[in-house]
């Protein structure tokens, strides 16, 4: 097991390194001189040249990359052009808010999807199966940014039950565990939960139906095993694959929440990314994407490690 974990970690390293290369290059595919953000357009040539040296832009790209990587590893992601604050601090505050949103959405979407998918798999072609199938099609087809708007219209504008924007009363950005702040979570979390709901329902339904059709289930039933005991067998067989899908989905929620955060003005990483793009704040853009992708890589690694821990079959291979 220890050896397996080590191998997984070693395998993840080149991936993580390539992610840093892509994040680095991202700024260099951006049109326009990166100096435009700091120097006025009519700055004299000497000033531009001096700035180039100061920022290291006179060096060849690989040199620039390794310098940037070295600083990034030491926790220095540069300074935001727009606010002048360190990028790392900006990103961290925002990422915590995004994780909050993503985790709540994941819990809601996964549990609902598991129950619905499980029931549908058990009662193939039944009424629950039809509802689950319809819901999973809607779940993957609905533009979630639009769903967010529709929910706002219904629950915020018409019924006036829930707040439509922000993370707390009075535009507060700091999260607190009280009823007032929880109210602000309801709409964005519900909207975001729809994304994994469809896929989790579909996956679990297929898995359960597949396992129930296996010969060993017939054998267990034939020897008189109770439904509850059979159910435990099903859970044990579904869990590893379901877990892998859910791990990926959680990662996608972290990256995919950008549209939902924009709709609800949620002060998370997606919102920050949006600001960075429109203010052409390239260091902030780069830093946000780097941190989010590293979390994603880490999450994938975690799934790879946990999967064989709960599925002995995978340990042997």
């Amino acid at each position: 097991m220890g050896f397996y974990v080590l191998r997984r970690v070693i395998y993840a390293l080149p991936i993580a390194l390539s992610v840093t290369v892509v994040c680095f290059l991202l700024v260099h595919i951006a049109p326009g001189d990166p100096l435009n953000a700091v120097a006025p357009a009519d700055a004299p040539v000497e000033v531009i040249n001096a700035l180039k040296v100061a920022y290291g832009f006179d060096q060849p790209l690989p040199v620039q990359y390794f310098r940037w990587l070295g600083r990034a590893l030491a926790g220095d992601l540069g300074t935001s052009v727009a606010t002048g604050r360190p990028v790392l601090a900006e990103v961290m505050t925002a990422v915590v808010n995004t994780i909050l949103l993503a985790v709540f959405a994941a819990v809601l979407g996964f549990s609902l999807g598991a129950v619905l998918g499980g029931m549908a798999g058990y009662r193939h072609k039944g009424i629950v199966d039809r509802i689950a199938t319809a819901l999973s099609v809607i779940g993957v087809s609905v533009p979630h940014y639009w769903l967010g708007m529709v929910l706002t219209i219904i629950f915020s504008s018409k019924l006036n039950w829930l707040p439509a924007m922000g993370a707390g009363p009075g535009g507060s950005k700091e999260w607190l565990w009280d009823a007032e702040h929880l109210r602000y979570l309801v709409l964005p979390v519900t909207t975001l939960a729809v994304i994994p709901l469809g896929i989790v329902t579909r996956t679990i339904r297929a898995l359960v139906a597949d396992i129930l059709s296996k010969d060993f289930v017939q054998a267990l039933r034939a020897k008189g095993m109770s439904d509850r005991a059979v159910f435990l067998h099903v859970v044990k067989n579904v869990a590893p694959t379901a877990l892998a899908v859910m791990g990926l989905q959680l990662g996608y929620l972290l990256g995919g929440s950008i549209l939902v955060e924009t709709v609800f003005a949620w002060p998370g990483s997606g919102f920050l990314l949006n600001t960075a793009i429109f203010q052409r704040d390239l260091p902030l853009l780069q830093g946000t994407i780097l941190i989010l992708c590293m979390i994603f890589v880490l999450l994938n690694l975690l799934v790879d490690i946990i999967q064989p821990a709960i599925d002995p079959r995978m340990r042997r291979s």
Partner: peptide, 21 residues
């Protein structure tokens, strides 16, 4: 190509089109 799988795809799409303008 495995490198692309290390990115959540919505994030990558937003990042690329954000950087390009």
């Amino acid at each position: 190509l495995d490198v692309f799988y290390a990115f959540p795809s919505v994030l990558l799409a937003v990042a690329i089109s954000g950087a390009l303008g």
